[in-house]
Design a protein around this nucleic acid. Structure first.
Length: 198
DNA sequence: GCCAGGATCGTCT
DNA sequence: GACGATCCTGGCG
């Protein structure tokens, strides 16, 4: 994978990140759930225009956007689309593959299914904090691999995003419908992600 | 199992 | 001074 992967529609990027392995330091997992946010979207931090906080979103693709949610959790996003266009993919859940003991220690949780099944959880498990805001995804401690597992397109579903109040109806959450590692079950009404990219 | 409530702080009004 | 792209706990059935 190279930077061009991120230099296109955030919806394509969000869908195709499913199945990729993300490593940060000694920990890694396979991405099983993402959400897309773009500039025209009231739920996106960049909707209000450029500020000190969201500046990274307007920058070059293939960088990390990390911010603090509810004063407690650092949430990890990947910046997509060309420089000047603000868009990002929220990484919502991973299936843990490497460094599981370290994840357990950081999370204070034994159950593997509780390690990375939510955006705040996976940041804690992988040691993500605000110091990684703006970091290049193609430099350490990050490492991104092509999918080493593929699901049929029918198993990747698009459904409404979680935990937001604005533009909540947009089906911009992508997840593996068969995975036990997603943050929440996919809704029965979810449709295949095919053709859903806006 | 489900739901309500609290923790906690940077960012913007 | 209000508000979150969340998570965990405790109460109740």
């Amino acid at each position: 994978m190279n930077r061009d992967f991120f230099d296109r529609s955030v919806h394509d990027v969000a869908r195709e990140l499913i199945g990729c392995e993300l490593a940060i330091g000694a920990t890694a997992g396979i991405i099983v759930e993402t959400e897309a946010y773009d500039e025209t979207d009231p739920a996106c931090h960049a909707y209000i225009g450029r500020t000190a906080r969201n500046e990274v979103l307007f920058g070059a693709p293939g960088h990390a956007y990390v911010y603090l949610s509810y004063g407690i959790h650092s949430l990890l996003n990947f910046v997509a689309e060309p420089e000047g266009s603000a868009a990002a993919v929220l990484i919502r859940a991973l299936e843990p593959t490497e460094g599981i003991e370290l994840m357990r220690a950081r999370r204070g949780q034994e159950k593997i299914q509780q390690l990375c099944s939510g955006p705040g959880k996976l940041s804690e498990a992988l040691g993500v904090d605000h110091s990684l805001n703006g970091a290049d995804l193609f430099r350490p401690p990050f490492e991104l691999s092509e999918p080493d597992r593929s699901w049929s397109e029918a198993e990747i579903t698009a459904s409404p995003r979680i935990g937001i109040t604005k533009a909540a109806e947009l089906p911009w959450r992508y997840c593996v419908s068969g995975s036990r590692f997603v943050s929440r079950p996919w809704p029965a009404s979810a449709s295949s992600a095919i053709g859903r990219a806006a």
